[in-house]
Amino acid sequence: MSADRPRLRTRLAVFYALTAVGLGAGPLAVVGLGAWSGGSTEEYGSPPGPPDNTLTVLLAALLGLLVVALAAAPIGWLLAGRAVRPLQELTTAAGGAAPDRLPGHGELGKYQEYADLSATLTGLYARLDSAYAAQRRFVADASHELRTPLTVQRALIQVKLADPEADATSLRAVCEEVLRLGDQQERLVGALLALAQGEQRPVAAEPVDLARLAADAVAARRASAESRGLTVRTDIRPALVSRADPTQLSSLIGNLLDNAVSYNVDSGRIDVATRCVAGRTVLTVGNTGPIVPPEAVGRILQPFQRLGPSLQADGPQTDRPQTDQPSAAQPQTGNSGLGLAIVRAIAGSHDADLHVRANVDGGLTVTVAFPET
C-alpha cells in the first residue's frame, strides 16, 4: 500500500469544511455589504464613508465565519469517518483472508451502494471458497493417482531383488511391468497438463475448421474402435468456429472419442456429427455403452471420477476394490479419469455450452455448442 496517496477521509473532511465555510460566507457577505452600503442613505452633502457601526458589523461577520470554519473541520472529519467506516471494515476483513479462512461480514451501512458491494463480495468469497475446496480435492486425488503406481513399482522391484532365484526372464517381466506403470504415469501427467491448459483462456484465437478436426480425430481412432467391433458413424458437415485454439479443440474432440471408445460395449456404436445451427457451431459425440444413472452425469465431469462396477460415479480408480474381470462400465485400457474434465475445461475456456446426456439405452451423448460467429 502506498503511503504517499491522499486519504479519502481527509479529502472528504476538507470538502465538508470548505463547503460549510463557503455556504456561511455567502450570507455574511450580504450582511456586510448591506452594512457598508448603508452610508449611501445619509443626507446629501455628508462626508462619504461607512457609518459608525459598519466596522463592528464586519468584524462580527468575520468572527462568525471563523467560528463556522473551526466548527466545520471536526464535524466534517466525523462525517467523513462515518462515510468510510464500511470500507475500513472491508479492508480489515480482506486483510485476514486465507485459503482456509475467507472473511465474512454483515450488512455494511444502510446505503444501497454499500449493500451492493457487500453482496458482490459475499458472492466472490463463496466462489473462492468453492474453488479452494475443489483445488484441495484435485490435489489430493492427483497425489493418490500418482503415488499408487510408484508404490507398486517399488514393491515389484523390492520383491524381485529379494528373490534369490530370480532369473533374467523374471527380471525382464518385472522391467516390462515397471515400464507399463511408467507409461501410465506419463499419460496421467499429460492429462493433468491438458486439464491445466484447458482451464486457461485460448492462447490462439483464430478461425478453426471444426469439421476437419473431427474428421482427423475419427480417422486416427477408427482402427482402435474397429478392433473392438465398434461401428463409427459420422455426419461431418461444414462447421467453423470463429475464434478458438485449434490445439485445444483437437484435445477436446480426441478426449470425447477416447471416452466413447473406452466406455463402450463390444459391437457398440459411436456417432460423430458437426453442423451449424442458428449461427452456432455444434459438435456432437454419442456412444453406446452401459446405462449411466442420470445423477452420475454431473460427477463424471469432475476430475478422477469414473463409473465403478456398481455403475455409480466413484472417486479415484485405485480406491475401488479390484475385480478379476473388467466391468462393462470401466474402460478396457488404462484411463486417467480426466477425459470429460478436460472437455469441460476446454469448453468453458471457449465460452461454449456443454451438455452431457445419459442415453436411455446406455452410453452418453455429449454436445458442445460454440458461441455465435
Rank of each mutant, 00 (worst) to 15 (best):
L188T: 07
L311C: 11
P27C: 00
V159L: 10
I342L: 08
R187I: 07
V68N: 01
R127L: 13
A60Y: 03
T19W: 05
H355I: 12
L179R: 15
L311H: 14
A196H: 05
W36R: 12
P238N: 01
L240W: 01
Q302V: 10
C276M: 02
G308M: 03
V232M: 10
R201T: 11
P51S: 13
P86D: 06
D245T: 10
D129V: 00
F138M: 11
A162R: 13
R127P: 07
S250W: 05
G109Y: 12
L230H: 00
A166E: 09
G337D: 04
R101P: 11
R180W: 09
G95H: 05
A119V: 10
R172M: 13
R320P: 01
T231G: 06
A341I: 12
F15H: 10
G109N: 13
Y125N: 15
A69Q: 00
Y44R: 12
A347D: 09
A341D: 09
P202M: 02
P6M: 02
E295D: 15
V208W: 00
L340S: 05
Y263L: 05
L179N: 14
A155W: 02
E42T: 13
P294H: 06
L55V: 06
P47M: 13
Q305K: 14
V277I: 06
R127F: 05
A155K: 03
L150N: 02
V282W: 00
G279Q: 00
P326K: 08
G348T: 10
A29C: 06
C276L: 02
L364C: 03
E176G: 14
S262D: 15
R154E: 04
L161H: 10
A205G: 00
T274N: 00
Q248D: 14
W36N: 07
T120P: 04
H105Y: 15
L240V: 11
V292C: 02
A196T: 06
D245F: 07
L252F: 10
T274D: 03
L58S: 05
N255Q: 12
R136F: 13
L193C: 02
M1Y: 04
R154K: 05
L192C: 00
P303N: 11
V203L: 07
L283I: 02
S143K: 11
L188Q: 03
L193W: 03
G229K: 02
R5Q: 08
A61G: 03
S250I: 03
L249N: 03
E165R: 14
A341M: 10
A191E: 00
T122S: 15
A196R: 03
I157Q: 04
A17I: 07
L192A: 01
Q185N: 12
A98D: 09
A194V: 02
L213F: 01
A162N: 14
R320N: 08
R5S: 06
S349G: 09
G38T: 12
V232E: 06
S250K: 11
T54I: 04
A134H: 12
L33N: 09
T10F: 00
T333W: 05
D324W: 04
